[in-house]
Amino acid sequence: MPDPSFLVTPEHRRIAYRLTDGEGPAVVFCGGFKSDMEGTKALHLQRWAEQTGRAFLRFDYSGHGSSEGAFLEGAIGDWFEDARAACGLLAGPLVLVGSSMGGWISLLLARAMPERIAGLVGIAAAPDFTEDSMWAGFSEAQRAALQRDGQVTLPSDYSDEPYIITRRLIEEGRGRLVLRDPLDLPFPVRLLQGTADTDVPPSVALRLLDHATGPDIRLTLVKGADHRFSTPECLTMIEDAVGQVLGR
């Protein structure tokens, strides 16, 4: 595979992307926390876009994958800005597909530029997770360590290396929350959620469904699916959800 292309954001971060030309609305994949654009879901949608002649964009946030920057220096606002800059590569309406943290990023994009959004698909979307999952789940000792040392370590189910959570990630995220104020999504929205997801439990999807307002918002719960949501059956469901949004 050829090397990715790069763009420099208005904030002077150099991020990697891969763009497939095709018909619009273009589909934009926003990945998860500490993931990259070479994951199963992103590559599956790449192949789907090539087969259907659909414009498709995937990219790496700064500090992720092939993009420049240090992961530990990043925060939700930085990665939202990266995503917004990547969307600037495309003209016309967009369909956002956000996985886990990418679901939060997609909601921030929808709030920032609603006139460009033709639809949104959330896959185990994790809005406000720095506050409602991380901070809320910290013990008093962990909160004290975060304030004292500027970071705290959490185990990871996906790597032998633990997650290092910085104080900036938590504090900056408080200015990016989307479930505290009205959240209008005036376009088709499809939310996909596994019932066996222990990272982003179904209660998060139900809260988002209850909180958001819009004419066409639907949540599909998949019994037994986990956070990866990458089995062949789940990948087909993602395709179908994108197709539904495009069809509307």
Rank of each mutant, 00 (worst) to 15 (best):
L7C: 06
L7R: 06
L7I: 15
T9A: 11
E11A: 15
H12T: 11
A16I: 02
G24T: 14
P25V: 10
V27H: 07
V27R: 07
G32F: 02
D36T: 09
M37V: 10
G39F: 08
K41V: 11
W48S: 09
Q51A: 15
L57C: 11
F59E: 05
F59G: 07
S62K: 06
S66D: 15
A70C: 12
F71S: 05
L72P: 00
A75K: 01
I76G: 01
I76F: 06
W79R: 05
F80W: 11
E81M: 11
L89T: 11
L89K: 13
A91L: 09
P93K: 14
L94G: 08
S99Q: 09
M101F: 08
M101W: 05
W104G: 04
A110C: 14
R111V: 05
A118I: 10
L120F: 13
A125H: 04
E131Q: 14
S133N: 04
M134Y: 15
F138V: 02
S139M: 05
E140A: 14
Q142S: 10
A144G: 09
L146G: 06
Q147Y: 02
V152Q: 00
P155S: 08
D157E: 12
P162S: 04
Y163V: 05
Y163I: 08
R176T: 01
V178T: 05
R180T: 13
P182N: 00
L183G: 01
L183S: 02
P186H: 03
V189L: 03
L191V: 03
L192T: 11
T195V: 07
T198H: 04
D199I: 12
V204Q: 04
A205E: 05
L206Y: 03
R207Q: 14
L208M: 12
D210Y: 06
D210H: 14
T213S: 15
T213K: 08
D216I: 03
T220K: 12
L221F: 10
L221I: 08
R228V: 02
F229N: 06
T231Y: 13
P232G: 11
E239P: 07
V242M: 10
Q244P: 00
G247I: 00
